[in-house]
Nucleic acid binder design. Structure first.
Ligand code: ZN
Length: 257
DNA sequence: AGCGGTGTTTAGGG
DNA sequence: CCCCTAAACACCGC
């Protein structure tokens, strides 16, 4: 599920309810998370994000790092309400937080504060020259390059297709074949599209939900993702689906060269 | 019923 | 290195 806009949405909502709140008790439900020590007594000091990774700093100086992967979701719930596939439950003064995750790919680590990442986050202003430099000698499809979290942190399968459609670039093209003007488009549009998606509180395709089980709105603004066979909004040609590195990829053969 | 598809990341092999 | 595949897991729809 969550790419940058969805994780950002959760961060914003979580800040309002857990920052400066103490964990009264923690309950590990899924044995895969049994490495987590008890968290009772710790207070959450901040909630931040880099790419798709969420980081809480705690009052004892340690950090909790969450990677929600495909289906991880946080829900703020009434007492004794338990969603399906709950893996972790945290009781706060003032409420209860549950990590629900049907496919159980999400990870949670208690660790020292991570070193600042050298990788730009997708909501930062991206430098076209830096992208071009990173793409030198990379022959992989530009779509895979954009989804590589060591390039830009936060772009996933949905937004990669959207960015390349808006930029008019064929997702199959080798990353090293792009011209400077094309990197400029990608840099500007990546940030713009991710910002717009944040404003829409993310994309609720399949079943992404926010902290209060509300859905996002960006799925209505998707131009190509999931729209195989539909007419392109720009040129009316039929949108095609191809598989790149095992992932569904949607593009317009007319607008994207 | 079985197969292909689903937002992510990682290890491993060619 | 570089890049793809498979696997981690559960579910849904055809
Ligand atoms: Zn088009």
């Amino acid at each position: 599920m969550p790419e940058l806009p969805e994780v950002e949405t959760l961060c914003r909502q979580l800040r309002e309810v857990i920052v400066d709140r103490q964990v009264l008790s923690s309950h590990v439900i899924d044995p895969k998370l049994e490495h987590l020590p008890p968290l009772a007594g710790k207070t959450v000091r901040s909630v931040s994000r880099h790419g798709k990774k969420m980081v809480w700093t705690l009052s004892d100086g340690m950090c909790l790092v969450f990677q929600l992967r495909m289906t991880g979701r946080f829900f703020w719930l009434e007492k004794d309400e338990m969603p399906p596939h709950a893996r972790l439950e945290l009781f706060f003064r003032g409420g209860r937080l549950v990590l629900s995750d049907p496919r159980r790919f999400a990870t949670v680590q208690l660790c020292s504060p991570p070193a600042p990442s050298p990788v730009p986050d997708g909501l930062e202003k991206l430098e076209p020259r830096r992208l071009a430099e990173a793409a030198r000698r990379r022959r992989l499809p530009v779509k895979s390059f954009l989804m590589d979290q060591k390039t830009v942190a936060g772009i996933g399968n949905i937004y990669a297709s959207e960015i390349l459609h808006e930029a008019g670039i064929d997702p199959m093209r080798p990353a090293c074949s792009l011209e400077p003007a094309e990197w400029k488009k990608i840099a500007a549009l990546s940030t713009r599209i991710l910002e717009k998606a944040v404003k829409s509180r993310g994309t609720s395709i399949s079943d992404w939900r926010d902290l209060y089980a509300g859905h996002g709105e960006y799925q209505r603004q998707l131009r190509v993702y999931g729209r195989k066979g539909e007419p392109c909004a720009k040129c009316r040609r039929e949108i095609r689906r191809v598989v790149i590195a095992g992932r569904s990829t949607f593009f317009c053969p007319e607008c994207q060269k």
